[in-house]
């Protein structure tokens, strides 16, 4: 996945062919707005998060104003409008996870990562965020890293998960 253009040295927000595909879809529908969430998610998938330039690119691709994109982007909590690490950990803090030790897991994660909620590890690998219920209440306490959900968290399990992800990344 190319995230920096070799010749311009600029961040690649989305590959040109993907942008073209969105442009074509937008031209094909009477309501291009329906593509907003898809496009923001595509930029985020590719670039890790949605910077201002991503909002502008999306606006321009769909023929809307940046503000019109920003109104949507800032509503959803899973669209990141600030830089995040390469993997975002969403720890559930809703009721089922709370009853099953979610607060202790939070403590544990903070310790292990050395960061608080809303922060990114100095090596840029992990960002820790709280989230509401992940729909994994039967497997509480649960967290989601990227788009993968992990349940029945214990100290050992968390260690393994974090270690494996670090290995994958290297």
């Amino acid at each position: 996945m190319e995230t920096v253009n070799q010749t311009t040295g600029k961040d690649v927000l989305l590959p040109d062919d993907t942008i073209e595909a969105f442009r074509a879809k937008a031209a094909d529908t009477p309501h291009p707005r329906e593509l907003i969430v898809d496009l923001l998610r595509a930029i985020q998938d590719h670039h890790g998060w949605v910077p201002d330039a991503g909002i502008e690119l999306a606006a321009q691709t769909l023929g809307l104003s940046p503000l019109q994109l920003e109104e949507i982007a800032t509503f959803y909590d899973k669209i990141y409008r600030q830089p995040v690490g390469r993997k975002v950990i969403h720890l559930c803090d809703s009721i089922c996870c709370w009853t099953t030790g979610g607060e202790q897991v939070a403590e544990l994660l903070r310790d292990k990562l050395g960061i608080g909620f809303g922060e990114t590890t100095p090596d840029g690998v992990f960002t820790l965020l709280p989230t509401c219920c992940l729909g994994a209440c039967g497997d509480a306490p649960a967290m989601m890293i990227g788009l993968t959900t992990y349940g029945r968290l214990t100290a050992e399990k968390i260690d393994t998960i974090l270690r494996e992800i670090r290995q994958q990344i290297d």
Partner: peptide, 24 residues
């Protein structure tokens, strides 16, 4: 339609807005 978070999108009319791409 793959969404991007927020419980209110479960409310049916907010969901319609979400699909349309206006504020949900």
């Amino acid at each position: 339609h793959r969404s991007a978070g927020r419980y209110i999108l479960g409310e049916e009319t907010a969901q319609l807005n979400g699909i349309e791409g206006v504020r949900p």
